[in-house]
C-alpha cells in the first residue's frame, strides 16, 4: 500500500509540474514549455497507472473499493481523457483549466487514503461489476472535462461579444475548436456511461433480481441530456452558447446524482 501511495504522490507532483508548465505556456508561447508540460503529464499518467495497478493487485480488484481509491481512478481518467482530447484536437491551451480537476481529486484521494485496504465485499466482484464501475468513472471524468470546456466556451464567447480581447482571449482556442473538444468529451462520456449503465443493469438483474433502482432513472436522464447536447446543434440549430449552458446544467444533474441520489435516495451506489 505504501508503494501505491508513494507512486500516487509522485504522480501528483508530476501533474503539478505539468500544470505549472501549462500555465507558463499559456502566458508565453514557447514551444519547450509545451513539450515539458506534455512530457510531465504523460509521465504522471504512467506513474499514476502504476499506483492504481499496485493498489489493485493488493485488493485483487479494480481500484474502486472505497471513495479515496475511486477518486484516484477518477483523477487518472480525467488526465487520460484530457490526453485524448489534446491528441485529437492538437490543442494544449485548455490544459491549465482541465488538469486542476485531476490534481484536486488525486490530492484528496492521497490525503484521505486508508492505511489498510478495506475488506473485500464478496458481492461486489466479477468482470461485469468491474467494467460497470470503471466505465461509469470514465463517463464522470469525460463529463467533468465537458463541464470545464463548456465554461471556457462561454468565457471565450463573452470576451468576443464584450470586446474583452486580453491575453486569455488570444490564448484560448477558437470557438469552433472549443466546441469540437466539448463535443468529443461529451461523446466519450455518453458512450462510457451508456455501456456502464447497461452492464450495471445486467449485473443488478443477476444480483438483485431487478433492474430498478432510482439511480438508474437519474442516470438515463443524464445520458439523455448529454445526447441532446450532441444533437441539438445539427438537428435543432441550437447555438454553441445554448448547448454549453445545457451541458453545464447536465453536470449539475450529474452532481445531484452523485450526491443526493447516492446518499438519500438509493443505498446501492454508496462507497462503503
Amino acid at each position: 500500500m505504501a508503494t501505491s501511495i508513494l507512486l500516487g504522490a509522485t504522480a501528483l507532483l508530476l501533474y503539478l509540474g505539468a500544470e505549472a508548465f501549462s500555465i507558463a505556456h499559456l502566458r508565453q508561447e514557447k514551444a519547450w514549455l509545451g513539450i515539458l508540460a506534455r512530457s510531465l503529464l504523460t509521465l504522471g499518467f504512467l506513474v499514476h497507472f502504476g499506483a492504481l495497478e499496485i493498489g489493485g493487485r493488493i485488493t485483487h480488484t479494480v481500484p474502486y473499493r472505497d471513495l479515496p481509491t475511486s477518486m484516484s481512478l477518477f483523477a487518472w481518467m480525467v488526465a487520460g481523457s484530457y490526453g485524448i482530447l489534446r491528441l485529437r484536437h492538437r490543442e494544449g491551451s485548455t490544459g491549465p483549466f482541465l488538469l486542476p480537476v485531476a490534481i484536486l481529486f488525486l490530492a484528496i484521494s492521497l490525503v484521505t487514503h486508508p492505511v489498510q485496504a478495506p475488506a473485500p465485499d464478496p458481492k461486489l466482484t466479477g468482470a461485469l461489476f468491474a467494467f460497470h464501475v470503471t466505465l461509469a468513472i470514465l463517463g464522470y471524468a469525460a463529463f467533468t472535462l465537458s463541464f470545464v470546456l463548456a465554461q471556457l466556451y462561454l468565457i471565450q464567447i463573452h470576451q468576443i461579444h464584450r470586446r474583452k480581447l486580453g491575453v486569455l482571449f488570444s490564448r484560448l482556442p477558437a470557438l469552433d475548436v472549443l466546441s469540437r473538444m466539448h463535443h468529443t468529451s461529451i461523446g466519450i462520456g455518453v458512450v462510457a456511461m451508456t455501456v456502464a449503465s447497461t452492464l450495471g443493469l445486467l449485473w443488478a438483474k443477476q444480483n438483485w433480481g431487478t433492474y430498478w433502482d432510482p439511480k438508474v432513472a437519474v442516470t438515463f436522464l443524464l445520458i439523455a441530456v448529454y445526447v441532446f447536447c450532441l444533437l441539438a446543434g445539427r438537428l435543432l440549430g441550437w447555438s454553441g452558447k445554448r448547448i454549453a449552458i445545457l451541458s453545464i446544467a447536465g453536470y449539475f444533474l450529474l452532481l445531484f446524482s452523485y450526491t443526493i441520489v447516492n446518499l438519500f435516495i438509493t443505498q446501492e451506489h454508496v462507497f462503503r
Binding site: Q156, I160, F169, A174, L175
Partner: peptide
C-alpha cells in the same frame, strides 16, 4: 482576421 480566427480557427 485575428477575430475571425477566434471564431473559426
Amino acid at each position: 482576421i485575428e477575430l475571425a480566427q477566434k471564431i473559426y480557427e
